[in-house]
Design a protein around this nucleic acid. Structure first.
Length: 670
RNA sequence: GCCGCCUUAGCUCAGUCGGUCAGAGCGACGCACUCGUAAUGCGUAGGUCGGGGGUUCGACUCCCCCAGGCGGCUCCA
């Protein structure tokens, strides 16, 4: 997201003067994408332009095309939406209406859900309101009682007033800072209040300062985020500093839709979700199977090189095992119901760890064996609620590239550091390079087991490893698994979206529950530390993320079909068959298109299938013992000698180049 | 699980007010064409309109239930 190239210099606001006047006197923009919409006071608080400080202060002007500026525009736009809703649906009660990433929403309690037609009508009314240049005017309420009186008809707002002390968060914009304020929308001519809303602000000066907006969709949302509360109807919208910025945003959404792995998976014949199998249970077609196999093979190789040992475990086990692990007591509702036979309940496994622990425990272990690193592509099944299943990124059956590292407490810090390095290196090999880390720690509630001290130690160990990596570290309080804290690696894809990939967890709980132990050098029996880690999260999710990252144009080493020979005419087929044979001998997945289609059609077909190397041969090429390259981007290199073409393709694939080959970066004509 | 929307040929979609509306493009298949960088032409096959129940003289169309999908909420070991 672009923002002002450089922020404007600070502005001095004399006592008794409004910030807006000072801004104007300083010659800063009052309209356009870089219009100043609010200012930041010396305490870091955003203030309306109508704010007039009691004594002289220096403020930082905030332009529309900054993150803060957009946030204010969006928040103001949410007010305009609420006004429009209450005009068109007078019975609507207001929930909350904060800005969010890329937009805003407002929740309403209404008789019936909004329809697409309603959204159109609301947009129209909002445009009228914006055109009307209503002024946003801040007004402090005398007291809580005065607030209750004023908001008598708004039950949800009343609730916020009553609990205001504990909802002072970024999302609840309504109240804050020990003072209750209302923003009135004033008619510019009469000065009369047309509409008002409990709100801490700040806002743009007038509705005219909302240059571009669009209502996006409706959804239901629980009041204050709890399933126990009534569901309100939420309207999502977006607002930007200019029409161009809005268009740019809509284009980014369109691009994300074109990259959607569910769409590309069907277009490229990679995988599907047969209804007959069940929701959230993918099958991989041959082409998807090749990509998956390549992904797995490389990962396997790297793990072997890094001292992992490979194990295999079954998909179901008796209930006792999951009682021991703690899954059934704590997470029974996310496991599939049991199969009962021979007087036993068998559960599909939701995690591989219990099985791996049993392998560790299968015989006495010596400290000399540690760290013991067990690895498995282990399929797990989780009962995800019907509303959350989403393509490959949220499935009910998936394969974790799971491993459990058993080590001594002394080994743990070093093991964690090298583990994190290993994880980041391997992700980079697949073309992801923009990461940040999240540290999930213990929160309130009975979900967490183990002593405070254990948690503290484990959290510190993780934190140190995370800090050593040099990456940005985002805290996630309360996000830990029940048995220990975790680091997760978030990777950004080609269009800037973040995905949770790897998780690394310290577990001091399972060693106890499973009575894991090793014999130390002094002959004593000690409990190992267990590190859980899934590098890709799940193979399916990683597959989906890579698909979207590359928009289906997979690196040549992963591409299901790496090269296709296209003859100009049938008489050139034989020549290409020879080229294909040579490529196949080098392990390249190559086809020759001998169909009845015209050459142009073949080029189109294989281009839309995102084949990295198209090898075209006509009379000239045959005569010269050459082929002509055409790449995904349409660029060409003509007349490359066959030997050289074969060697360069094989080398490109062997190097695991992640960019798409093109005339510019492919060394075949040198 | 909750709210809303959606489901018509392999894919993408059209189908008015309940009654000649079972339709198109792509794909598949067949025939002709043999061509130098993103769609050659002609033809053929393919659907009990997601499944089940109901209303009606009559249902792709209206109602109910179920399944699957989409967007959110909640959740995510």
């Amino acid at each position: 997201m672009s923002s002002s190239v450089q922020s404007p210099p600070p502005v001095v606001v004399p006592a008794g003067t409004t910030a807006g006047t000072a801004i104007r006197d300083a010659g800063l923009a009052g309209k356009g994408p870089d219009a100043i919409v609010v200012v930041r006071d010396p305490d870091g608080r955003l203030r309306d332009l109508a704010w007039a400080p009691g004594s002289e202060v220096q403020v930082q002007p905030v332009a529309a095309d900054t993150d803060d500026g957009r946030g204010v525009i969006r928040h103001s736009c949410a007010h305009v939406l609420a006004q429009a809703v209450q005009q068109l649906f007078p019975e609507a009660k207001l929930g909350i209406g904060p800005p969010v990433a890329d937009g805003f929403y407002y929740d309403f309690d209404v008789e019936r859900p909004f329809t697409p037609d309603d959204l159109q009508a609301l947009e129209k009314r909002m445009k009228q309101i914006i055109k009307g240049a209503q002024r946003f005017a801040r007004r402090a309420l005398e007291s809580v009682d005065a607030a209750r009186e004023e908001l008598a008809a708004e039950p949800y707002k009343l609730e916020l007033v009553d609990i205001k002390s504990d909802v002072d968060t970024a999302e609840v914009m309504e109240v804050g800072d020990g003072e209750l304020t209302v923003y009135d929308n004033l008619d510019p001519r009469s000065g009369e209040a047309v509409w008002g809303d409990l709100c801490r602000g700040p806002h743009v000066p007038t509705t005219k300062h909302i240059p571009a907006f669009k209502l996006m969709r409706t959804a239901a949302a629980y009041w204050r985020g709890s399933e126990q509360n009534p569901q309100l109807q939420r309207i999502y919208g977006t607002a930007w500093e200019s029409q161009e910025a809005l268009d740019g945003y809509l284009e980014r959404l369109a691009e994300a839709e074109r990259r959607d792995h569910r769409r590309i998976g069907a277009e490229l014949d990679l995988f599907s979700f047969p209804e007959e199998i069940g929701s959230g249970l993918p099958v991989f077609h041959p082409k998807g199977g090749i990509i998956r196999r390549e992904m797995e093979n490389y990962s396997r190789q790297r793990h072997e090189e890094s001292g992992y040992e490979f194990v295999n475990t079954p998909h179901i086990a008796k209930s006792g095992l999951f009682h021991t692990s703690g899954h059934l007591p704590y997470y029974a509702d996310t496991m599939f119901p049991p199969l009962s036979f021979e007087g036993e309940d068998y559960y599909l496994k939701a995690m591989n760890c219990p099985m791996h622990h049993l392998i560790f425990r299968s015989r006495g272990r010596s400290y000399r064996e540690l760290p013991l690193r067990l690895f498995e592509f282990g399929a797990v099944y989780r009962y995800e609620k019907s509303g959350v299943v989403h393509g490959l990124t949220r499935a009910r059956g998936f394969t974790m590239d799971d491993s459990h590292i058993y080590c001594t407490p002394e080994q743990a810090p070093g093991e964690l550091r090298s583990l994190l390095r290993f994880v980041l290196d391997l992700l980079a090999d697949y073309g992801l390079s923009d990461f940040y880390l999240e540290l999930s720690t213990r929160g309130e509630g009975g979900k967490f087991i183990g002593s405070e001290k254990e948690w503290e130690e484990a959290t510190e160990t993780l934190r140190r490893a995370a800090i050593d990596s040099g990456l940005e570290l985002v805290p996630d309080p309360g996000g830990a698994a029940y048995y220990g804290p975790k680091i997760s690696v978030q990777a950004k894809d080609a269009i800037g979206r973040s995905w949770q990939m790897s998780t690394i967890q310290v577990d001091f709980n399972h060693p106890k529950r499973f009575e894991l132990e090793y014999t130390a050098a002094d002959g004593s029996h000690q409990q190992p530390v267990v590190l859980h880690r899934a590098l890709f999260g799940s193979m399916e999710r990683f597959f989906g993320v890579l698909t979207e990252h590359y928009a289906g144009a997979f690196p040549a080493w992963l591409a299901p079909v790496q090269a296709v020979g296209i003859p100009v005419a049938d008489e050139h087929l034989e020549h290409l068959q020879q080229v294909a044979k040579a490529l196949r001998a080098k392990g390249i997945r190559v086809q020759v298109d001998a169909s009845d289609d015209r050459m142009q059609k073949k080029i189109r077909n294989h281009t839309t299938q995102k084949v990295p190397f198209l090898l075209i041969a006509g009379g000239k090429d045959v005569a010269a013992g050459a082929v002509s390259f055409r790449f995904r981007d349409g660029s060409q290199i003509n007349g490359v000698p066959v030997d050289r073409a074969v060697a360069e393709i094989a080398d490109w694939v062997a190097r695991k180049e992640n960019v798409s080959p093109s005339a510019e970066n492919f060394e075949a004509d040198g």
